[in-house]
Each structure stands twice: as structure tokens, then as C-alpha cells.
């Protein structure tokens, strides 16, 4: 188990593709139980950074720990200890809600009994009993999103990475999803999330803004607004990101 007070610590993390420095010496920590918003323009290097944190890509230099494991030497351990949900692919549309949870639970090495008791509780908590036996392709998008989050966290990871979880989602569904995030962190989970909806940045405990591979700003939404003399995170983001030089 990770005994540190941090779920993520990263120092001078760098990734180069040939001459191109996608991620340029980024340094930051994420405390346990924190909602950390990882913002940046398209092409700023967010996805590359996130892939390194999830153990899917080896850094060119620098180091870091996620969930207590070294991102270079213990990448396999990290994959087992984190949850990951992406906008594009999260669930198997042709399987039922219950089958999806069983699949993800099995992949993460849970026993049949654990899967059964956890699924049962989750369906109850989320008021999703009636959706259990339905094909995921047939259930409304709001439920699908909740289910994707549940599938990504069925193994009770210390930290969950959410890559644009609300992309293209309407205002009501987005809000319901954020309430789910709040609940998970109230139970002690750490949430690392990317989004282009800047009202959602206000819901994070702390936010970083990446520009051209570097972290240009990192603080709580209130402090960032004070520093940039802005009323909203939208204004802060525009001020920080408009100086980007990188040609996507």
C-alpha cells in the first residue's frame, strides 16, 4: 500500500518523440483524496503525460510515483492499482451492464464473490437495478457514463484517471457525473481528470494548465482567479493558453 500522503508525485517528467518534446520537465504532486483537474489546449501534451502516469508510456527522463509505485520500474503494478476511463472507449456495447462489470472485475483479478457483492451494492447505490440485464448499447447515455465510472473503479483503485469523461455530454448528465466524482472522493478516492468544460475546472480542488508541454499554472481555482484577476476559470484558461506557440 501507498503510505505517502500523495497519490501522485512527479519530478521533471519529460517525453520526447525525436526532436519533439511533447512533455517538458513537468513537476507536481496530487494529494490523496484530491480532485485534480489536468487542463490544457489540444496538443499541449496532456494525453502523453497521462499515458506516462498510467504506466503506458516510458518517460524519456524524469521520474514519478503513482499509487506508491515507480512509473518506470513498476509500470505493471501501477496498471493494477489505478482506474482509467476514457471518453471514447469504456464499455462493451454488446454486453449487458452486469456482464461489463464482471468482465472488468475479472480483468482486475477480483474473485467471483467479490464481483458479485460489489456489483450488487453498486447497482443499488446508483439506483440502477433496472439496468442490470440491459445491453449497454441500449441504455441512456447518463446511465452509461455512471456505469463506465463504476467499471473503472470496481477494483477500488486508490486513484482513477478520467480522460475527458464528459466530452459532448449535455449539462444535466455532466452534473450528475460530477456528483458521482464528489461521492467517490468523499470515500477517499483520488481523481485525476481532464476536461474542456471550464465550469468543471471550478469543481476541482486544484487545477494545472499545460501549455506547450509545460505546466504553466497550478493552484486552486480560487487562487488562480485571484492571480490572473479573473472572474472565472474560463478567463484564466484563455489568458494562460493563448500564449501557446506549438503548432498542434
Amino acid at each position: 500500500m501507498n503510505n505517502s500522503e500523495y497519490a501522485i508525485t512527479v519530478k521533471d517528467l519529460t517525453k520526447k518523440f525525436g526532436d519533439f518534446t511533447a512533455v517538458d520537465r513537468i513537476t507536481f504532486d496530487v494529494r490523496k483524496g484530491e480532485i485534480f483537474g489536468f487542463l490544457g489546449a489540444n496538443g499541449a501534451g496532456k494525453t502523453t503525460a497521462m499515458r506516462m502516469l498510467c504506466g503506458l508510456s516510458v518517460p524519456t527522463s524524469g521520474n514519478g510515483r503513482v499509487a506508491g509505485f515507480d512509473i518506470v520500474r513498476q509500470a505493471e503494478m501501477i496498471k493494477r492499482r489505478i482506474g482509467y476511463m476514457s471518453q471514447n472507449f469504456s464499455l462493451y456495447q454488446n454486453l449487458t451492464a452486469e456482464e461489463n462489470l464482471r468482465l472488468f472485475g475479472t480483468i482486475y483479478g477480483l474473485s467471483d464473490r467479490e464481483i458479485k457483492t460489489r456489483s450488487q451494492r453498486l447497482f443499488q447505490d446508483l439506483d440502477m437495478e433496472s439496468m442490470r440485464g440491459k445491453r449497454v448499447g441500449d441504455i441512456p447515455v447518463g446511465w452509461k457514463q455512471k456505469l463506465a465510472f463504476v467499471a473503472a473503479t470496481i477494483h477500488l483503485p486508490e486513484i482513477v484517471f478520467l480522460d475527458e469523461p464528459t466530452g459532448g455530454v449535455d449539462p444535466v448528465t455532466r452534473r450528475k457525473f460530477w456528483e458521482l466524482i464528489y461521492k467517490a472522493t468523499a470515500d477517499g478516492m483520488t481523481v485525476f481528470v481532464t476536461t474542456h468544460y471550464l465550469d468543471e475546472a471550478e469543481y476541482c480542488n486544484r487545477v494545472s494548465i499545460m501549455v506547450d508541454g509545460r505546466i504553466e499554472a497550478l493552484d486552486s481555482p480560487d487562487n488562480l482567479k485571484k492571480r490572473y484577476d479573473a472572474d472565472t476559470m474560463d478567463e484564466v484558461f484563455r489568458m494562460v493558453a493563448k500564449n501557446a506557440k506549438r503548432a498542434e
Binding site: 490544457g40 489546449a41 489540444n42 466530452g167 459532448g168 474542456h196 484563455r238 493558453a241
Partner: peptide, 13 residues
């Protein structure tokens, strides 16, 4: 049809 989904705030402007 939803041309700016997944696009950052500056590019959307």
C-alpha cells in the same frame, strides 16, 4: 453536427 466537441476553449473561440 457538434463541431467543437473535445476542442479546447481557445480553439473553440
Amino acid at each position: 453536427d457538434e463541431p467543437t466537441t473535445g476542442v479546447d476553449a481557445v480553439s473553440r473561440s
